[in-house]
């Protein structure tokens, strides 16, 4: 087990012991080493089950929003993308952030459960696939992780940062985080400025690769590319159910809303576009939609592509500042000074 595991287990144990939280939600071992499941931990003895490997099967933020008790104090062990989703859910009043203690783990990308049935991922740099240990190379990472540039959890209460030698540093981003570290009697270390240029370069390169070829296409070809992708859809609602930001209790895509044609398979393109319209402006590019898709539609590519267009347009970065609301449900002071039909 890596040192990161031990530190996170330590923090969780002391949070429970000090009664800072009533329960902790984190990923841990299920029936065996390769079975990673979300755990609801109330007993500090169970903290040893927590693992922090490069596999992230579902959004914990969404689990808390769906099933968590708003009045209970909950600890969460999250990756940065899920921590951003948590902030987005808080903006939509789906979680009570005041009662949540979040522990963010620095992340250089996760691997997706693919056709290989049993894969064990050992963070930070190797992957066991089909019985052999391979380095965690770019091509085994989930596509959305290759495009990610938010490796450092700056939006969580406690940030666990990884060092190149396998060690960890722990930092508190908020007062709540400081309370957690005091309870765990961990001294806050001054963060050395880690060099992230190589990873930013990786993100830029993969963005260019993934988006570039689509952008180079003629508009008509791009349309037919997406229409062909959407025709693979079997309308399982997996993307919607996996998306941390899809929070509506009454969903547009349900047949009784009569927006999308009932019993049509593949569903009309509006099935995909409708969801894209709802969450595209605040997509955190966590990749859960694409991982959930049984038909291999590159969903997160589409969402990330739109998010990359909308983010500079609305001057909005999703998942960081609780005070900035989703761009289409708010208007800015700058808007009031413009008189045209466009935002320029």
């Amino acid at each position: 087990m890596t040192k990161c595991n031990e530190i996170v287990q330590d923090i969780v144990r002391s949070m429970l012991r000090a009664k800072l939280v009533d329960e902790v939600v984190a990923f841990g071992r299920g029936i065996n080493e390769s079975d990673i499941v979300p755990l609801f931990i109330t007993d500090e003895k169970d903290a040893e089950k927590i693992v922090t490997i490069s596999y992230y099967p579902c959004s914990l933020a969404k689990l808390v929003a769906l099933y968590g008790d708003r009045n209970k104090k909950i600890g969460l062990v999250l990756r940065p993308c899920d921590a951003r989703s948590l902030v987005e859910l808080a903006k939509r009043q789906q979680v009570n952030l005041a009662n949540i203690y979040s522990i963010g783990i620095e992340c250089y990308g996760v691997v997706r459960a693919g056709s290989n049935s049993h894969q064990v991922y050992i963070f930070p740099d190797t992957v066991q696939m089909d019985g052999e240990t391979k380095p965690l190379a770019e091509d085994v990472l989930a596509p959305n992780c290759r495009r990610c540039e938010y490796m450092v959890p700056t939006m969580t209460d406690v940030a666990v940062r990884l060092l190149p030698d396998g060690g960890c540093l722990v930092d508190a981003n908020t007062e709540k985080g400081q309370a957690v570290l005091e309870a765990a009697s961990i001294a806050v270390t001054d963060m050395p400025a880690l060099d992230l240029t190589a990873l930013k370069e990786r993100a830029a390169r993969w963005k260019e690769k993934d988006f570039g070829e689509l952008k180079k296409m003629a508009a008509k070809d791009r349309l037919h590319y997406w229409l062909a992708q959407w025709e693979k859809c079997i309308k399982c609602y997996g993307c919607r159910n996996a998306c941390p930001i899809c929070y509506c209790k009454e969903c547009y895509l349900e047949p009784e809303k009569q927006i999308v044609k009932n019993e049509a398979l593949p569903p009309e393109a509006l099935f995909h576009v409708g969801r894209l319209l709802h969450v595209g402006d605040s997509c955190t590019d966590c990749g859960q939609c694409e991982a959930a898709c049984p038909m291999g539609i590159p969903v997160s590519k589409l969402y990330h592509m739109l998010y990359e267009e909308l983010s500079p347009l609305f001057d909005y970065e999703s998942g960081f500042d609780l005070a900035t609301l989703p761009p289409v449900s708010t208007i800015s002071d700058k808007d009031l000074t413009k008189t045209g039909v466009t935002l320029d």
Binding site: M217, D221, L223, W226, L277, V328, T342
Partner: peptide, 24 residues
């Protein structure tokens, strides 16, 4: 009072979306 300010933002969003999926 402010409805059309929201419309303007939504239209800007949909225009970007059309561009991304390949409609004019």
């Amino acid at each position: 009072t402010r409805g059309n300010y929201f419309t303007r933002r939504r239209v800007a969003m949909v225009k970007k979306l059309l561009e991304v999926i390949g409609l004019e």
